[in-house]
Design a binder for these strands. Sequence first.
DNA 1: GTTCCTGCAAAAGCTTTGCAGAAGA
DNA 2: TCTTCTGCAAAGCTTTTGCAGGAAC
Lengths: 140, 140
Amino acid sequence: MKPSFEDLKSELKRQRIGLSVQRLKILAYLAEHLDHPTVDQIYTALITEIPSLSKTTVYNTLSVLQDAGLVRPLQIDEHETRYDIEIETHGHFKCASCGTIYNFSLDPNVMQKIDLPAFQIMDKTVYFKGICPDCLSNKK
Amino acid sequence: MKPSFEDLKSELKRQRIGLSVQRLKILAYLAEHLDHPTVDQIYTALITEIPSLSKTTVYNTLSVLQDAGLVRPLQIDEHETRYDIEIETHGHFKCASCGTIYNFSLDPNVMQKIDLPAFQIMDKTVYFKGICPDCLSNKK
DNA sequence: GTTCCTGCAAAAGCTTTGCAGAAGA
DNA sequence: TCTTCTGCAAAGCTTTTGCAGGAAC
C-alpha cells in the first residue's frame, strides 16, 4: 500500500510549504522507496537528476517534511538516521546478516494491549532484530 | 529488580574477561543507574574516582560488556548511544517534554503474539514516546 | 522588493582507530 | 616476558549552523 505522491503533495500545499523541485524529488523518492533510505542514499540517488543538489538541502528538506508530519525518522542500530514515509503504524525488522530493514504490519488489537495508564502515549515504535528468510535459506 | 553486581562480576570472570578497575567501576555504575546513561554521563560520573579515565576506555569497556552480553545499547532519538544493563525484556518510554527515559515491563504473553513466522527473531525492542505523568501534572 | 529556499564552507558532536606505554599474569 | 588494558591524539562520520546568492511570488 504505497502512499500516493499526489496526496503527499497536496498535504504540503495545504500546509503552505513551498513545492520546490528539490523537495518534490526528495518526497517522490521517499514515496517510491520504502526501504528506509539514509540521507546519503537519497542524495546519491538524486544528484544525477539535480546536479546542484547539496546534502544540506536533503537535511533541510527532511526536517521540513518531518515537521509537516509526512516522514518519520528511524533510529536503528547505525549512527545514521533513516527515513520513512509516514504510513499506518508498522514495525521494523532488521536482518543482522544482510542488513535489510523490513516493514511488517502490527495488529492494532495487540498493540492496544501494551499500555501505560498514567502516561500520554504519542507514538509506539516496535523494532525486531534477527535473521531474515533469505539469509536463513542461504545458510543451508 | 536491580541486577546484582556480584552476578555481573562472576559472569565477566566466567568469560575470562579481565576485571580492571575501570571495567568494574563502569559496570557498577550501570548496575546502579538504570536510567540509561550516555558515555558522557558515565565518564563524568567516574572521572572524580578515576582521574586518569579517558572516554576511549569508556567506549572500549562498553563494547566489551556489550559483546559479553551484559549491557545493551539503546538507540533513542538522539545521536548519542545510551546503555542499559541487560535485564529481562522491557520497553522504554521517552518523555518528549522532560527527556526522561522510563523502563516499563512488557507482558511476555502479549509480546509473543507479535510474531513473524518466516523470520528468526533474536531481539524485540519496544519504544514509546509521549508525555510522562510528572510533566502532565505540571502542565495544569 | 520581500520572503523563502538552496547550497557552500565551516563547525560541532559522537565514535573509532592507531599506537605507545602501563599494568597484570 | 608476554599478553592485555588504558588513554592520548588524531581521524572519521553524520549532522548542524552561518550566511550569501538565487529563485519565486
